[in-house]
Computed example of a mutant assay.
Amino acid sequence: MRQISVNRLQQGAVLGRTIFSHSGRVLLGKGVMLTHSYIDRLKELGISIVYVDDEESKDVVIEDVISDESRREAINTLEHFAEAVRIGKELSGFQVKKAVNNIIGDILFQKDIFISLTDMRSYDNQIYTHSVSVCVLSIIIGKALGLDKETLEALATGALLHDIGTVKLPKDLLAKRDVFTAKETELYQTHTIHGYDILRTKNDLNLLSAHIALQHHEWLNGSGYPRKLSGNRLHTLAQIVGLADFYDNLVNDGPGHNRIVPHEACEIVMGCANKLYSQQLIVTFLKHIAVYPTGCTVKLSTGEVGIVVDQNKSLPMRPIIRVLMSDKEMSHVQAKEYNLIEDLTTFIVTMVE
C-alpha cells in the first residue's frame, strides 16, 4: 500500500484504506476499484491524499495506531457532541469518555509507536478527523512522558474536544483554505473562548478539558492567544495538545491554511523549541513521528523515484526506499531498495505528491 495525491490517481487504482464521512459512515471502502467518477468525487470532497494497493507496494504495511472502529466511533461521537452544542441540547459526557478510553486502550496496548499514517480528509470531516488525530498524538506524547491513566484520560478528553468551539463559527470560514484576513483571524481565534465556555458547564467532564480548549493556542513565549500566557502559567496538558494541534495543522489542510509535507513540518517544529513549546516536549514528540511516512513517494539524489517501504526508527531521516521508476524516463525499472542508513551517499531530495 502507498499514498498518492488524488491529482495523480488513475482509473483502475484500488483503494487501500477506507474513507469515512464526518459521521463515521463509509464513503468508499478498502478494495474499491476507482473510476473516473469516483476520482472526480474525491476531488469535489476536498480529499487530497488517498492510499492505493498496487504491484509495487502490495507488501508494504502501513499500520494505524488505533483501530478503524475506535477512529470511527470517536468521529461519530464528536459529530453528535457538536450537533448537541449547536441546538442547545444537553449531552452526557459518557460517550466521549468511552471513545477516549478506546483510543487510550489501543495506544497503551502497543510498545513502540511510530506515526506514519496520513489522514484522508474531506471538507466535511476535516474538523472531526483533525480532533481525533490530535487526541491520538497527545496520548502518544502523554504515554511517553509517563502520565498516569487518570491524567491521560483528562488529556485525551481535552484533546478530542479542543476545537469544539468552532461550532460557533461560520461554516464558510472553516471551509476556507486561503490565508485568513486580519478580521477572519480575529474571528477564528474566538473558538478557544467558545470551547472553554461550552466545556466548563459539562459537570461529567474533567474541568481540565475546558482549560485545554482555552489554552491550546497559547505559546511558551507569550505570543499565543487568547490571553498571551507564557512560561509556567501554561498548563502542561494544554501544551501537549497545542503541539499535537500545531503539527497536525501543518501536515493537513485546514481553516486558513494548506498542508506541507511532514519533513518540512518537523523542521518547523524543531525551530519552535523553547519558543512556542518546551524542548523536552518537542524532542519527545519527534521521536514518534516518521519524517518520511511509509508509503510516500520520494525523489532521491540519484535521480530515482521510489516509495518509503520501511522505517529506521533510530534515524527517521534515513528510511528504506524501494525504487519505482527512472526520474528521466518515468518508466518502470527493476525494483531495488536503498537502506539509507547503509547507503550513506544517497539521500532524499524531496517528497513527490
Rank of each mutant, 00 (worst) to 15 (best):
M1P: 01
R2L: 10
I4M: 06
V6T: 10
R8N: 11
G12K: 07
H22K: 12
S23K: 11
K30V: 01
H36K: 14
Y38S: 06
L45R: 12
G46R: 06
V50Q: 01
E56F: 11
D59R: 14
D59P: 00
V61R: 15
I66S: 02
E69I: 07
E69D: 06
H80K: 15
A84G: 07
S92A: 14
G93A: 13
F94H: 06
Q95W: 15
N101W: 15
L108D: 02
I113T: 08
F114T: 06
I115K: 12
L117T: 08
T118Y: 04
S122C: 10
V132T: 05
V136H: 00
I140L: 14
K143I: 09
L145K: 14
L145I: 04
L145N: 03
G146H: 10
D148S: 07
D148L: 08
D148Y: 09
K149E: 14
T151Y: 09
L155F: 09
L160S: 12
H162L: 12
I164R: 07
V167F: 13
V167T: 15
K171S: 11
K176G: 05
R177M: 11
A182R: 12
E184F: 11
T185C: 09
H194G: 05
H194T: 03
G195C: 03
R200N: 08
L208F: 08
A210L: 08
H216E: 03
H216A: 04
E218M: 12
Y225E: 09
K228D: 03
K228M: 12
L229M: 13
G231P: 02
R233W: 05
T236R: 13
T236G: 01
L237I: 08
A238M: 08
I240R: 01
I240E: 00
V241C: 01
V241P: 00
L243H: 04
D245W: 11
G254V: 04
P255M: 06
R259G: 06
R259V: 06
A265I: 07
E267Y: 04
I268W: 08
V269H: 06
C272I: 02
L276R: 13
L276S: 10
Y277K: 11
S278C: 05
L281V: 00
I282D: 05
I282N: 09
V291I: 13
S301I: 10
K313F: 02
R318P: 00
R318S: 07
V323N: 04
D327A: 15
H332M: 10
V333Q: 13
K336W: 09
N339E: 02
L340H: 02
D343N: 14
T345A: 09
I348M: 13
V349H: 04
M351L: 15
E353W: 11
